[in-house]
Simulated scan of single mutants.
Amino acid sequence: MSARRHSLDLSSIGGRLQAERLRIDISQTEAAQLAGMSKGAWIAWESGKSFPDARVLAAFAHAGADVLFIITGQRIKADAIPAQEPLVGVTVRQALAMLDPVDRHRLLLDLLAGELSA
């Protein structure tokens, strides 16, 4: 996927929606499928021409998106999320998406450096 991460407008809901889509590494087509909408609708949301409803945001959150960030511009801290169910069946990508960006970066650096032990 080609990402234009450098030109994101994080001051708008559409820009933050796009940022979260890129962060969880899915295409606009995949995001639209999650939402049960057309790719055109997703593009309109990212461009700020219209806005997704709560059902769409809930589906996007289930895929790993930080909906609080999309709406308010503030990130959820990983330790503020109540543990409701075990992480059984969660993919590595989903687990990484749940981490605070700084913690995710540190973990990935440690993995690359081979400094984690079992």
Rank of each mutant, 00 (worst) to 15 (best):
S38M: 05
R75Y: 04
S47Q: 11
F51M: 12
G15C: 03
P82G: 02
I71W: 01
I81Y: 07
G14I: 06
K39T: 12
A80Q: 15
F51W: 04
L22H: 09
I76D: 14
V67H: 02
A31I: 03
R93G: 04
D110Q: 06
M1I: 06
I76Q: 15
G14D: 10
L34T: 00
A63K: 02
G89F: 06
A83Y: 14
L8K: 09
D66V: 06
R4L: 12
W45T: 03
S12M: 07
V92W: 09
Q33S: 08
L57P: 01
A59I: 00
Q18E: 15
L17V: 05
F69G: 12
L111Y: 03
A118H: 12
S7Y: 08
D9N: 15
L107P: 00
G15Q: 09
S38T: 14
L107D: 03
L107K: 01
W42N: 05
L96Q: 09
P86S: 09
L111A: 10
Q33L: 08
K77G: 13
P52I: 03
A63R: 06
R104C: 12
H6V: 11
A58M: 09
S117Q: 15
L10M: 13
V90C: 10
F51E: 14
G73E: 08
G114Q: 03
R5Q: 06
A78Q: 11
R104D: 04
S11D: 14
W45H: 13
A80N: 13
A95N: 06
A35I: 02
D100E: 12
G64T: 04
M37H: 04
E115C: 03
L109V: 15
R5T: 13
I43A: 08
L112P: 00
Q94E: 11
K39C: 00
L57E: 02
M37N: 08
L68R: 14
W45Q: 00
R93M: 04
E46Y: 00
Q94R: 13
G48R: 01
G40C: 02
A35K: 00
D100Y: 02
F69H: 13
G73K: 08
R16T: 10
E20I: 07
L107M: 04
L96S: 01
M37D: 08
Q74N: 14
A95D: 07
